[in-house]
Design a protein around this nucleic acid. Structure first.
Lengths: 193, 193, 193, 193
DNA sequence: AATGAATGAGATTTCATTCAT
DNA sequence: AATGAATGAAATCTCATTCAT
């Protein structure tokens, strides 16, 4: 059962961090190897190349996102409850490992089509929630596309605030307030807190 | 006085568009020259290099942002009016030339310190508005940093929605609705529209 | 431990020779790589760039010069003996590897300050020998700076003569005669040979 | 009879100085134009290109060298007198305009063949003087090639000493002493001074 | 006579990748 | 599993020269 690949994790972690810090295109194999304390060739033992590494990192971590979000979807509750839950899930995901979260945000626009489909589902999920909420009369008649962007914007920008140290970790602390703001923006009757 | 700089504008415009389309790091000098219909060396007549070009483009266009926003600040009105005005200004800026707007958004994190100071002012401006509104009782007691991020998130994400064609131009059309959402998120009493 | 650096020596030797043949500015990375039988990028595995390569070559080889000359200094003998010894050392250094010697002569004016300090010491060494000899009455009262230049000029120009094939190798063969000329120029009583 | 070419002299002087300061290959047309206070194109009004400029500068100034030296040759005097005169001529040439002198020294190895012939004559001239002096018994039997290099080395290195501020201008002040050193090195009976 | 934009060739440098060790 | 030299392609940048103004 051979030695475990001691450096694989280190390479992947270094890559992920650098991709967030300097951008994917701004990070070279050398940068990654250097931070991981290995040489350039080592990376190719574990990954086919830079592209495949990015893809592997994305798919790996995106799993957890997809699972947690899918779980949220399952529980058929009110719009308010679902949105609140979703915000919590997002912030929890962020707090578990902020660099991973940021990498997913940064990389999602580059990773290939089949993955994009998944990513699209995220926007789509919120869109459907909004659409249903309007149909059910939970929130007033309005442009569902716009509301979708507004809510996503609030959640994502909160993570940006953390990155630039304008907000403090853990994000989960702010989940309730952000959820409330989303519902207020949607014109929902706020649940008593 | 020698040949007039026929290609300078073309180079700069091509660069700006490509930076938005393919990212700054993903765009090569050759890409830029090729789209501008010049040879690579031509760029160096007008700019010292890629870095300086990015910087120059940023500073150039950021001017207009700073001016318009400064003008908004001057008009001492209620929180609701100021926020509404600010959203309108932003969306107008975006609609005037969406690629320019997107470039500013994309480039602001790379451009050096003195410029960053200016960019910081934008966040700071909103922050001060929020702080004052809380003090004046226009909006309820709450974390001003968080609200700042939420409002900025809504405005920026709206422009992302346009980019991915989930929302249609002109953005200005959505200004009222976004402003209303910002105020709702802030817990302000909504002005009758 | 990876491939051994088969080409490093070749790159450095090629560079050194070309710098002498065509001048430092007249030699391109491509010239060097081509003579060394490698691609241009190979150079950057071993050196940061052209400047650092020049510097590294200089420092490397200058070591030997400094050591041999320092050794000569130690032996406290008469002016005549010291000068004779110095000329011999120089010519021996030259004969060991004329291209290296010539490179050192060519490069010394471009290499940065800390190295220049060392180089200065060479002139300084001769200067001090001259000064002392005047004080001790070994040679007549005269401008020590001028005599220093005269003696250095004789030694260096002899190496130029070799390069243009007006003199034949080995230079060491001429050491006695050159030393005698130096002493004559200094007005020293010539030692019987 | 048109305007005089105001900038021609400025371009040529700037070029000459820069060639001395930074080397011929290290000096760009831009450098030259910039120091001359003109733009790049201006140079091409007066010269065909960089190569021709170098050549023109060399030939121009070399004239004076050739003339003065030829004049020295004409006067058939003793070896001692001729050498003394030659050193004076050289140092006078240097003092008239040190940058010009240095440029001639620096450029002589690059300028094409027919000029090289002339330059060769300089070494050759000294060589013939030495040869004759040996034949006439003015100086002892010795290697005439070596003595030629020694004397040239003394004269040239003296100019280097000035450049590095180890000797003070005017060089002519040192002519007598250098001539005496040359004669001493040659083993000539020194003329009473 | 001079300008300075633009060219085109080439120089320097970077970098993902391969491969012998 | 890992090394690190070397490759080859591409990226950035320089520069002598040309040419419209």
């Amino acid at each position: 059962m051979g030695r475990p690949p001691l450096k694989k994790k280190s390479i992947e972690r270094s890559a992920l961090e650098l991709f967030v810090e300097k951008g994917v295109d701004g990070t070279s194999i050398r940068d990654i190897a250097s931070r991981a304390g290995v040489t350039e060739g080592a990376l190719y033992r574990h990954h086919e190349g830079k592209d495949e590494l990015i893809r592997a990192l994305f798919i790996d971590h995106f799993q957890r996102f997809a699972e947690l979000i899918a779980a949220t979807q399952g529980a058929h509750k009110s719009f308010a409850e679902t949105i609140t839950k979703l915000v919590e899930v997002f912030f929890t995901l962020h707090d578990e490992d902020p660099p991973v979260f940021e990498f997913i945000m940064v990389a999602r626009h580059r990773v290939l089509d089949e993955v994009r489909a998944d990513e699209k589902n995220l926007v789509e999920l919120v869109y459907r929630l909004v659409k249903d909420a309007i149909k059910n009369g939970e929130i007033p008649e309005q442009n569902p596309d716009l509301l979708t962007e507004l809510m996503i914007g609030m959640v994502l920008q909160t993570t940006v605030g953390v990155r630039y140290q304008r907000l403090k970790l853990p994000l989960a602390k702010h989940a309730k307030a952000v959820a409330r703001a989303c519902l207020a923006a949607a014109g929902a009757k706020l649940p008593r807190n």
